[in-house]
Design a protein around this nucleic acid. Structure first.
Lengths: 226, 226
DNA sequence: AGCCATATTTAGGCTTGCCTAAATATAGAT
DNA sequence: ATCTATATTTAGGCAAGCCTAAATATGGCT
């Protein structure tokens, strides 16, 4: 079977390149906090497994095979189901779930996966708004775009937020920003400057720098939403 | 910190020798399904760690230090809390919980431990009737003795059942034997022969061989119990 | 077309945890 | 007290994943 390291490589390839593009060695080294040379060695192994997890070509990075893609999606499904479970059943904070899920996703069985999916009512999105892949590998869709591209003067609903930085999540929590929160973009500073925005029609204006804005995706606020 | 292998050794030492006796290399090899030579190497490492997990003397096996005992009890607490959680919250069968808990016990955080303990109401016994150590290392007591020593003609309440053999648990389930079940020992065959007993005052008489009887502990049936 | 910065691979090594086979120490029986 | 069966250790090896330093391939720019 797949070791924990294998799972992490497959997940990283999926996150960098999606299911059908190539991920470079350098990008993987960066994401996995590992030396580039180590990545090369592992990619070779992954491509020589039977059946192969990836299609690897020297100097051209790696792309998931169907087999590898299925495994990566299974890990992502585990991760997001666990995050939601920790949040809704065990009362974990929004910012605490990621680290715990990162360890648990490798340890749970298919049975566990099915039971928590059932307890949660076969949910399609995790607490950060990320889609939870179905068991068949399809991914729930929700059209949204980066907060970075939002037009000044418009209103929008937060769709999802990156779950990787716990401090960032704590800050967002503290100002009331989470999935389904309504925000109003007042203006954008010049030269990729900060975004000035109001949360939930509040009075306070918050300044969002580039990194923060890049971690948030939004969808248009329908007029029928309160 | 302690690797998964380290945790498994500490747990095995505790299970073989308790908190204050010595476990032999051979017994550990047997329990961990590992070659005796491997055990020797690991015991040396465990005793040379700082602080040491065990007190090890050549040819005289190993005994847990306070540090090692604390860690072993923590793993056992994790294991039993998880078993109970799987059973009562996720609806796992009695016989399914052990294997899953075996993997999860190493992956959960102290936070997870605390949350499930709270959800379960700080329970003291797992679904097989085994005591769940408290966080301070004390162990809930319940006086019982092996079914093997039960007197023919007497009645007793099942107190706990070994959780290691899933097939055995399935069989016991199928005849209605679980913690708190009342049993009546009709007679014992000669020369360590089978125990003939009735379950819950039923009509059918079951024959229990040595291995089965050794896996079950019972306490006296008080007259006030139904 | 050639060059240089960058991306990638090779080579050699480390740790953890396991293995087998051969050597040795121990304890229990006589 | 000695001997033998058994318990234990030593010695040498393997695989997985990681590391660094040095060598090499690539591709974008002029």
């Amino acid at each position: 079977m797949a070791s924990e390291a294998v799972d992490n490589y497959l997940k990283a390839i999926f996150q960098i390149a999606g299911g059908d593009h190539r991920a470079t060695t350098a990008a993987l080294a960066e994401k996995l906090k590992v030396a580039p040379a180590s990545v090369t060695g592992m990619l070779k192994k992954l491509s020589e497994a039977t059946p192969p997890w990836i299609d690897y070509q020297k100097h051209h990075g790696a792309r998931l095979t169907g087999h590898g893609r299925a495994r990566a999606l299974e890990m992502i499904r585990h991760h997001r189901l666990i995050e939601l479970f920790l949040h809704t059943v065990l009362g974990y904070g929004w910012d605490e779930v990621h680290a715990e899920a990162e360890r648990l996703e490798h340890a749970i069985s298919e049975t566990f996966e099915d039971r928590i999916a059932k307890v949660l009512g076969d949910p399609e999105f995790d607490p950060h708004g990320h889609p939870i892949p179905h068991r068949d590998g399809t991914i729930p869709k929700r059209s949204d775009s980066s907060l970075v591209n939002m037009e000044p003067g418009t209103k929008a609903i937060v769709s999802r937020v990156s779950d990787h930085d716990s401090e960032m999540l704590q800050y967002l929590s503290s100002i009331g920003v989470k999935p389904e929160t309504r925000i109003h973009l007042i203006e954008r500073g010049p030269f990729d400057g900060p975004l000035m925005l109001r949360v939930d029609d509040g009075t306070k204006v918050h300044a969002f720098g580039r990194r923060l804005a890049a971690a948030i995706r939004v969808r248009a606020a329908g007029n029928d939403e309160s």
